[in-house]
């Protein structure tokens, strides 16, 4: 594990076939930061969900616009920022679903944000539509 802070970046076109590359990038760094397999899996899934949301919603599936992923590894803290410049959303309008009710209605999609919040220790959204949207995901080692 790095002694101080180390930062890594990945800038990648927003296409679903890049999700595998993103997961590989994240899981390698999570292992490097000292996480065990269970936590590596959680971080990998949370970042996949954040990037899938960008591809599907922010850019409306328009290819080739970039997703910028930054990872900061500190002594006990692993921070992933996922940034896009697409259409944002009002996080206050997105309620964390009551999963029982949600599943009973058999609603398709929309599970990503619930998963992200369940998998990570801290989740913070900064939304400036068309300018910069960012979700910051934190997991403590």
């Amino acid at each position: 594990m790095p002694k101080n802070k180390a930062t890594y970046h990945l800038k990648i076109p927003s296409q679903t076939d890049n999700l595998e590359v993103i997961r590989e990038f994240i899981s390698n760094l999570a292992r490097k930061a000292g996480f065990q397999n269970d936590d590596v899996d959680k971080i990998e899934l949370a970042v996949d969900e954040a990037c899938s949301n960008v591809i599907k919603h922010a850019y409306k599936k328009t290819d080739k616009k970039p997703i910028i992923i930054s990872v900061e590894i500190e002594k006990n803290k692993f921070t992933v920022s996922v940034t896009d410049h697409g259409k944002g959303f009002d996080i206050n309008k997105i309620k964390t679903p009551d999963m029982k009710e949600y599943l009973a209605q058999m609603r398709v999609g929309g599970l990503g944000i619930y998963l992200i919040k369940s998998l990570m220790d801290e989740v913070d959204f900064t939304i400036e539509p068309g300018v910069k949207n960012q979700v910051k995901l934190v997991k403590y080692v």
């Binding site: 997961r23 899934l45 899938s52 398709v108 999609g109 990503g112």
Partner: peptide, 16 residues
């Protein structure tokens, strides 16, 4: 070896 919510969504879409 791996599943995300997009995969789970497939089952939600058809079960009913």
């Amino acid at each position: 070896t791996y599943i995300s919510s997009a995969g789970l969504g497939v089952f939600m879409g058809f079960i009913e």
